[in-house]
Design a protein around this nucleic acid. Structure first.
Lengths: 110, 110
DNA sequence: ATTATTAATCGTAATATTGCAATAATATAA
DNA sequence: TTATATTATTGCAATATTACGATTAATAAT
């Protein structure tokens, strides 16, 4: 199969999984960290910084953009990428709610 | 390939990616939510609750256990699963640090 | 116009993931 | 001991992911 049965789960569960999935590769983690750190965030800079091939970085950027976590602006032959702060905040709401769950009663049931 | 070049990234980046990856499937999200919600957390209960086949649930539980986020205790023929609260907290430290990043200066560089 | 720069896309190989039927393993009950 | 209940493991098919070379597209510089 290789394909998740998303119809069996709630929208909230699928949303969390989608966001988590995109964070599930260290290259995308590194890209996002770099975008938070650097103001000038050209694609080529990320290729140099991270060390994967240009098409590979481009592909990871596409996934991040597709989820709305970053945006890219064409500047001549370059493309400037940066965090989509509004959507990042929205993502955080969902993820934090999941991560901040607490065991209701007895700490260790088993 | 299909295989991440982990050696190019920091331990912290790889750790975040590993945790995120395990949250990247709605079934594992659902399992964890159920374990937070219910005290008696038998494997069979999860099969009924979630609706995937028993081997599939068992496999997802294995991954969660392998990362240390849950623990399982044998009780007769059943196995009681629950959140490993200590490790969950440790995971949260790493994930929150990543999620709480803030853009340093100008909100939208592009 | 030609050439250089930069990034996206295509095609493909290698590997990983998901899901389940069949089976095995383990412990309890009769 | 034999049957029953519960979970783990194995094997396999379908699909997804990762990575990159080759190419294309688009703009800028000469």
């Amino acid at each position: 199969m290789g394909l998740a049965k998303t119809e069996m789960f709630t929208d909230a569960q699928n949303e969390i999984a989608l966001f988590a999935k995109v964070f599930g590769h260290p290259a995308r983690v590194a890209i996002l960290q770099q975008l938070f750190k650097i103001e000038g965030c050209y694609c080529g800079d990320l290729v140099n910084e991270i060390g994967l091939a240009q098409p590979t970085i481009s592909q990871h950027l596409k996934e991040l953009k597709h989820l709305g976590l970053i945006k890219g602006n064409v500047e001549g032959t370059s493309v400037c990428y940066c965090i989509n702060t509004e959507n990042w905040s929205k993502m955080k709401v969902a993820m934090l709610q999941f991560l901040n769950q607490d065991v209701s009663q007895n700490k260790d049931c088993c």
